[in-house]
């Protein structure tokens, strides 16, 4: 049942994406990612020397600081910091610069739904801008389950408040633009189909959740294509 949403999209359409890089001149890398009206600015400083707590002599360490638009730093911000730190730790090649710290600072410019996926995409683009070695990119999208049981991608703030449940997922980006037909056997499932991060709020059935993952995977292919194009144009003037 395809229903028309408030801004005219259908269930599987994402909001328009805009990615600008190299905005801040002092930071080693920076990027601003916009999904509709949600805008997040990410800045990367690193790799830096100097001992911080929890630094490992064999691996690089990543530190994330989240600055909300208004208000003090509370538990929500700390949770976002931790999810982001663990996601970025899994995509960076940590053994290349051991005993260093890379700081990622996120500033929420405006929040209109799907804040965490926007932040993950922004910090990933900023890491590329800073030249930090990565295994693959992380592409993130959010999906929600409405009160009458249909799944919508990339919900806006107004829609988020009425959702029954809400899932935020991060996938590795696909190496080719078109996803091959997914085979259901375990041996045949390529690594790109795995999930890096997933957080869900609200109760839904297990089948609904697996459907969300499928929708998210399809959407992540589109987002990774967009990301590839925007990265290419910057480097080929």
């Amino acid at each position: 049942m395809e229903e028309v949403r408030a801004d005219g999209r259908n269930g599987q359409q994402l909001r328009p994406l805009v990615c600008t890089r190299n905005l801040l001149h002092r930071a080693h890398g920076s990027a601003q990612w916009c999904q509709g009206d949600t805008i997040v600015l990410a800045a990367v400083y690193g790799p830096k020397a100097g001992t911080k707590k929890g630094e490992n002599p064999e691996k690089a360490s990543i530190e994330v600081i989240w600055k909300p638009k208004t208000g003090q730093i509370g538990k929500t911000e700390k949770q976002y910091e931790m999810i982001l730190r663990r996601t970025l730790q899994s995509i960076c090649i940590l053994t290349i610069h051991p005993n260093t710290t890379t700081s990622v600072i996120l500033q929420v410019v405006s929040d209109s739904g799907a804040l965490l996926p926007c932040a993950i995409n922004a910090s990933c683009a900023a890491l590329v801008d800073a030249g930090i070695p990565l295994k693959h990119l992380a592409v993130s999208v959010s999906c929600g389950l409405t009160q009458n049981g249909s799944l919508i991608l990339d919900p806006s703030k107004v829609e988020e408040q009425e959702l029954q449940a809400f899932v935020c997922m991060a996938f590795p980006n696909s190496p080719v633009t078109v996803l091959p037909e997914a085979s259901s056997s375990k041996e045949g499932e390529p690594m790109e189909h795995g999930i890096i991060t997933s957080t869900s709020y609200g109760s839904m059935s297990v089948n609904d959740y697996l459907c969300c993952i499928e929708y998210g995977r399809a959407a992540s292919a589109k987002i990774s294509e967009f990301l590839r194009r925007s990265l290419e144009t910057e480097h080929n003037p």
Binding site: S90, A170, G194, I195, I196, T199, S200, Y201, D208
Partner: peptide, 16 residues
Amino acid sequence: CLVSLYKPGGAALALT
């Protein structure tokens, strides 16, 4: 009912 599924990053990717 699945109330929450939480996977905060990590080196291993989770297949379905």
